[in-house]
C-alpha cells in the first residue's frame, strides 16, 4: 500500500454497503465483532461496529451520521468526520462499495 493517506473518497450522499466477500459478523465464542475478509478476520472496534451496522447499500451516509449523532448525543461534525474517514478507508480497501 502507498504510504500517503488518501483523501476521503466518499461524501454524505453515497450509500455504501459491503462488497461480496466481506461482512460484519459477531463472533459469539470470543464475544467480539469482526469484519470477515479474504483469508483474514479484522477485529472491529465498537465505533466501527456502530457505523457498519447502519450500512445496507441503500441508506445515505448523511442519514447514518444523523442517527449516530442523535443516539450518542455527540456533535454532528465530529461524528461526520469519524464516519467519512472510516467508510472512505474501507472503500479504498475494497471492503465497501459506494
Amino acid at each position: 500500500m502507498s504510504s500517503h493517506t488518501p483523501p476521503p473518497v466518499l461524501n454524505e450522499d453515497d450509500c455504501p454497503g459491503f462488497n461480496r466477500g466481506y461482512r460484519l459478523q459477531h463472533d459469539r465464542v470470543r464475544e467480539q465483532w469482526v469484519i470477515q475478509a479474504p483469508e483474514r478476520a479484522l477485529l472491529a472496534d465498537p465505533i466501527a461496529v456502530a457505523i457498519l451496522q447502519e450500512l445496507d447499500g441503500k441508506t445515505r451516509i448523511g442519514t447514518v451520521i444523523d442517527r449516530l449523532a442523535e443516539r450518542y448525543e455527540a456533535p454532528r461534525e465530529q461524528i461526520a468526520t469519524d464516519v467519512l474517514t472510516l467508510l472512505s478507508d474501507l472503500t479504498e480497501k475494497r471492503i465497501l462499495r459506494s
Partner: peptide, 21 residues
Amino acid sequence: MSETPHDGRTDGAGHTPAPMS
C-alpha cells in the same frame, strides 16, 4: 482495527484458545 482478534474461550483446559481457521 487490528488483524489479530483475541482468542477467547479456554474450555477449562488451561489457556488453550479456540481455533480461528
